[in-house]
Structures are given as C-alpha cells and as structure tokens.
C-alpha cells in the first residue's frame, strides 16, 4: 500500500473468475503497485464478492492512458444506449 489511493463502490453484475461466473458486489479502484502490469503504479480495478473470500476477484491493471480511454468509452457507450432507449432505468 504505497500510495493508499483507493476507493470502493458497491456494484451489481457478474464477473468470470478462475472457477466460473459469480455475482460481483464490490469494485475496488486503486492507483498503486500492480501485481502483473509492467508499471510502477497502475489503475487497478478488482471486481469482487467479499462474502466469497479473497479468491472471488476479477482483476484488471491498466495504464493511466488506458484507464482514461476506458472511462470515456464506457460513458460514450452508455450515452449511445440511452439515446437508443436501451437503458432499463430510462
């Protein structure tokens, strides 16, 4: 925990881990040392179900640029879906 930059958010959805699909309840977003990506720090997202133990985790480790691009892309796709009337909450 060298930066301690981390936030958690409750989410609904599914993630696919080594043992198959499971319900993801929480996302942890941090900017800290990655385990695998070749950077000193990365934008790390862990999709988890805390009740199922540490192994219930789908992880991504992104460069800063990749993370920003992903955020923009998610928002653009959601906007397009909203415009098309596809959002269930719309």
């Amino acid at each position: 925990m060298c930066t301690m930059i981390v936030k958690q958010v409750e989410i609904d959805g599914s993630g696919k881990g080594p043992d198959g699909w499971f319900a993801v309840r929480q996302a942890s977003v941090s900017f800290d040392h990655p385990f695998n990506a070749p950077f000193e720090h990365a934008l790390n997202i862990d999709f988890t179900d805390p009740a199922r133990g540490p192994g219930a985790r789908v992880a991504v480790e992104l460069s800063e640029q990749a993370a920003r691009h992903l955020v923009d892309t998610i928002l653009a796709v959601l906007a397009q879906a909203e415009k098309g009337g596809f959002l269930e909450s719309a």
Binding site: S30, F35, P54
Partner: peptide
C-alpha cells in the same frame, strides 16, 4: 495476490 488485493481495498 488475491489476499493482498483485499488488503489494498481495505486501505
């Protein structure tokens, strides 16, 4: 890694 990720999430 999974255990450390949980600790990271907890601050």
């Amino acid at each position: 890694e999974d255990v450390a990720a949980r600790v990271r999430a907890e601050g």
